[in-house]
Structures are given as structure tokens and as C-alpha cells.
Write a protein that binds this DNA or RNA. Sequence first.
DNA 1: AAAATAGTGTCTTTCAGACAATATTTA
DNA 2: TAAATATTGTCTGAAAGACACTATTTT
Lengths: 226, 226
Amino acid sequence: MNENRTYPMLMVDVILLTLIERKLHVGLALRMNPDEPFFGAWTVPGVMVRPEQDADAEAAARRALLSKAGVSSPYLEQLYTFSGQLRDSRGWSASIAYYALVPADAAPETQDKFRWVEVDSLTQLPFDHMTILQSALERVRSKTTYSALPIHLAPAEFSMSGLRTIYEQVLGGSIPGRTFERYIEQLDILEPTGELKSFGGAPAKMYRIKQRKGGLAQLGPSLLAR
Amino acid sequence: MNENRTYPMLMVDVILLTLIERKLHVGLALRMNPDEPFFGAWTVPGVMVRPEQDADAEAAARRALLSKAGVSSPYLEQLYTFSGQLRDSRGWSASIAYYALVPADAAPETQDKFRWVEVDSLTQLPFDHMTILQSALERVRSKTTYSALPIHLAPAEFSMSGLRTIYEQVLGGSIPGRTFERYIEQLDILEPTGELKSFGGAPAKMYRIKQRKGGLAQLGPSLLAR
DNA sequence: AAAATAGTGTCTTTCAGACAATATTTA
DNA sequence: TAAATATTGTCTGAAAGACACTATTTT
């Protein structure tokens, strides 16, 4: 009795985040298909899942990022699956939502079909994308309090207080410097480059992410969203 | 060009957990359809999503629980969406996985089409259900360390040390009693019933979940999986 | 020199956990 | 009475945060 059934629409949407001039920005793509809802509007990058093309949903999410935003190897983690009759005018649909983080220096430029928008200035988005964005921000802020997640927003080399500033931008509040340094040190995920660099004051020691050590496991997206 | 496309299979699977005789158990359903894979095997309760019937994926998960396990109002939270070509012999599929917690005294009896199996004694399950189970356990254990999640495994009224035992069973280790009481007290989610009850020693104060207070928000499933 | 930034030492407060002490039940 | 369980008080060590002090750069 199930032989010829039709399944509901299945898509992936990706909340792409970066830090530009000390502000969190989300990447939006221009909708180009006149046969689809919100033609000409700016939305979160997303694609329909194509089983013949995408090994799994994460592969579809990477395809969405590459084709709609030109981003190739971000930190990517599944967020939540949003579903129901009402979220898309074409009918019942499910969207497997992901969020992605890219360092500012690896983020694509704003183009005619892609642009960065400051998160705090956004008040609405098509579909339920505003809800998805809010969820992603909650998740990122939450993980920031107990993991090294914001490292994926940092450039290849950075100073300790530069990293602290990134954390502060993500969390939206200040962090005691002494506490922060002890916290990062205990995570054991950074190694000094040996260089010093000045940002308008005393020179700061530069760090990079420590490669291939035990402590790095906590950087990867656990299957479990936590 | 998308007009007549077929979408991949979309299903929900639910990891149903309870505590029986101080051990975590998972609810399994007997597969009854000879046209489907693993006919006659025990698997996690799941259904195909039916857009005309299910308001959203969570509704489908509730339908799976009610029809396959006879469970009607559990704590229910979305876990992760598993997808890909390989997880089901019928082809590319996506399963929106949920986990559910029920108190032992509200759990259905083992029947011919439904039964409880001790989690620690399970070594394999059909499809990728073992992976889903592992993820659910990780999630539950993780949330146990910073929320009152295991309360949903407790009966309507319970003692402080009874609740602590539940936490210990979920986490698989002992918890210092003094620390636990301070932790629970600070969550401000319990209220004393006024009764005392003995479990083989001095009588223990009984508690219930505090109703409709600010502190209760942390009990609900936040959309955000954390 | 003044201002900005970086890095480190240390004091205080807070909290988790250990442990003791007391109390009340069952065997 | 002995054993089991419950509840509360208090001590200790670890960690967070506040704050001060020194150092090095730019303006």
C-alpha cells in the first residue's frame, strides 16, 4: 500500500555566520527561481536534497554553501529539522537546518547574488528562516560557554585578546580577561606561533589551533548536538 | 524542472527510554509488515511521515509512540536527523530521530508487539538504530549534567535520594549526596508534598515537580537542542 | 609623556565534594 | 541492638572573578 507514495519536500538550509568588523553577520542568498516562493528575496542558502547527488544531508548542506555562497570548507554542524504544513506555501516540507562558521578572512565578498547582513539588524526573513537563525544563535552562544566553538570564526593566527574579543562578540558581553586565559589554556587547543604582533599597544603573542592532538576532539562537531 | 520530482523517504524514529528496576531500558517494537526490511525483527518505534495526517515531524513521532508502543504523553525531544543512501535498503532516506522519556509507573507493559530491553544488554539493532540509540544516550547523559531532564523518568512523587538514584543510573556513576541536593535545590523545580515515606531507613521527604513557575521553563524541550 | 594594549601575580568569594554527626526507620 | 537510609552541618581545596601591577607599544 506504500508502493507509489509521494514523500514530502526535503531540503537543507544553512545559517552561515562570520564576524565582520567585530559584528556577527549572516550570509544570505538571492532567490533566483521565478517558479519558487520568494523569488527575488534574500534568504538563507538552501537546496532541495538530491538523493542521486548528495551522499547525505550534510553533503547537501555543503552543496548549498558552495553553490549559493561560494564557501567551501566551513565548520558545519546540524542544528535541527524544521517541518510542517505551514512553513512553505508549496505544502508540507521538512528542512534539515545546519549552521556554519567561517573566519572573516575566508569569508566570500558580498556579490550580487550573495551578501552579508549584520545579525542584529535583521528583523525578518522569508519562510521560517528567522526562527532557524534564532535557533542557530542560541546554539552557538550556548556552545561558546563550554567549548572552543568560536575558534572557527578566528583567522589562522590570532592573539589571546583577539580571541577573547570574538567570544565577547558572539556572547554579547564582556569576559574577564584572566578567567578567559585560564579557560583557553585548560582546553589545551592552542599553540603559540612564536610571533609577536602589536594591535596598538604592547605586542601580543600569536597563537594557532593545535594540530592533531587529543584535545582537538572537542573542536569537531559531535554527532550529538549536545 | 522540479515539477514532478520525487523526494526521498522521510520517517521518524523514536528512542523510548524508561527506568525499570534501576536499569535504563529502551522500548522496541516488532516489525509487522512483510513488505518492509527487517520483517519480524525488533526495532525502535518509527513511522513514515504522512503529511495529510501529521501536522509536523513531532506529531509523527507521537503517532509512532502511540501506535507502536502505546505511550501517549512522554517527554519528547528531537535528537538528530540521520540520512543517506546506505541506512535503508530501500534507498536514500532521512529519519528525524527523537527521544522520549517515560516514568516507570507510566510505561506500558511488555506485550507481543512491544517490549522493553535493558540498554546495556543491547549490542545491535537493525538499520542504523544502534547509532541513534547511542546518540540518544549521549544526549540524555549530557543534559543530565546541566538540567533536570531525568525528572521525566521519575514517578509523580519521589524522594530526594530516589531522584538521585535515577540520576546515577542515567549517568552510570555515583553522585555525592550533598552536592546533588544543593544542585536540585538551586534549580528550584521541586516542591515538597509534605509527606514522609520510608524506603528501609529513616523516612524521606517526598517531592513533586513544581507546577507553572518560572523555573519550569528549563524542563521543557527547548527548540534548541543545546 | 600619555594612552592603549598585553601579560601575570594574587586576593577574595564561591562552590563542589569529603566527611562527620544526628536522626529515624526496618530487621 | 545493628544495619540501612535520610538529612544537615562544616571543612577543605579548586576555580572564578576582581583587581593591581608591570611591561611594551603607538600617538
